[in-house]
């Protein structure tokens, strides 16, 4: 279902909604295209005319400075015109006004919606209801998917450790509420990663998480053994109020990544984080700023991945509807 929605009849990318079910070749093709996009970002004029004349609307129903900025920058590097529309989820609780918003933007000849929303399935919903020439890119929907983030993560891993079959990757933290983790797990499994682990207390793990194709650890030190990549997830403060965790202190004590704990992983293990980091909650500053940390690389790769996805989805679309 998702697959038929995001690929067209000839198997090309139409919308980008989820990593789940994406063919291996398509995923690699996005990574390869992103690789070529990285060249654009290091030269004097950081812009190519690929999407000149296209209009991309960033529809963010949930505040996010960084993801929105990288999407915006990616679109601008491709010479598209960008509209940033910040919307309050509460104002669009009724489906009709969400669709009304879409219709209004369609009337302004927008070619692509980049959508972030606090409810799972929103990007699917929008993709099902937009005019046929419009493309939709999911910038995060509820707990469901954040596909561009996952791809920039595997892109970063590939640059350092391209042989996924021999890798052991551990994802640590709030898997339950994380769209990033879900998409990462799918991406790593599509790339046939040797082993994917999740490390968290049970209150932060989805039911039946094993069915995603991961090994579950409740103990961080057990889970870090022989790991090539450690991905730390952001912990939201509300998890303490909602009864998922007793305190940030206890979380850091058991699941925080410290220098000593990082020693348990392979000596050249990469440390990643989708940001923004809560220093002293998810990891210590010494780890975040260590040479093993590729957190800032992730940010720059985010632009290349988003450029790749936008240009692939907008290929072969007419300039006028």
């Amino acid at each position: 279902m998702s697959l038929s929605l995001q690929l067209d009849a000839s198997g090309d990318l139409k919308h980008f909604l989820t990593v789940e079910g994406l063919p291996y070749e398509m995923l690699v093709s996005i990574l390869d295209t992103a690789e070529s996009m990285t060249g654009v970002t290091v030269r004097s004029i950081k812009k190519v005319p690929l999407l000149r004349g296209k209009t991309i609307a960033n529809l963010f129903f949930e505040p996010s400075t960084r993801t929105r900025t990288t999407f915006e920058l990616a679109a601008k590097r491709l010479s598209a015109d960008v509209l940033n529309i910040a919307l309050d989820s509460a104002a669009t609780l009724k489906g009709e006004s969400l669709l009304d918003t879409l219709r209004n933007l369609e009337a302004m000849y927008v070619d692509m919606f980049v959508v972030r929303h606090s409810h799972s399935g929103t990007a699917h919903f929008i993709a099902q209801h937009v005019a046929p020439h419009i493309r939709v890119v999911n910038a995060g929907d509820g707990r469901h998917a954040h596909p561009t983030q996952a791809l920039l993560d595997v892109f970063t891993i590939r640059r350092h450790k391209p042989d996924f079959g021999s890798l052991c990757v551990a994802i640590v933290g709030d898997i339950l509420h994380s769209r990033v983790a879900r998409s990462q797990i799918h991406a790593l499994n599509i790339l046939l990663t040797g082993e994917v682990r999740v490390i968290a207390p049970r209150t932060l793990l989805p039911v039946d998480v094993e069915s995603f194709g991961v090994r579950v650890f409740y103990d961080l030190e057990d889970g870090l053994r022989d790991v090539d990549v450690v991905i730390m997830l952001r912990l939201q403060h509300e998890r303490m109020q909602s009864g998922h965790l007793p305190s940030e202190y206890e979380y850091y004590h058991h699941y925080g990544l410290t220098r000593d704990r990082l020693q348990i992983a392979k000596p050249d293990a990469l440390v990643m984080h989708p940001g923004p980091i809560n220093r002293g909650v998810e990891m210590s500053s010494s780890v975040a700023d260590s040479p093993q940390s590729v957190i800032l690389e992730q940010v720059s790769h985010g632009i290349a991945i988003r450029m790749a996805v936008m240009s692939m989805a907008l290929a072969r679309t007419p300039t006028t509807p």
Partner: peptide, 14 residues
């Protein structure tokens, strides 16, 4: 680009 799309094997310019 609007007619044939992106070349499947784009290499970075160097």
């Amino acid at each position: 680009f609007s007619h044939v799309g992106l070349h499947p094997e784009v290499r970075p310019s160097r």
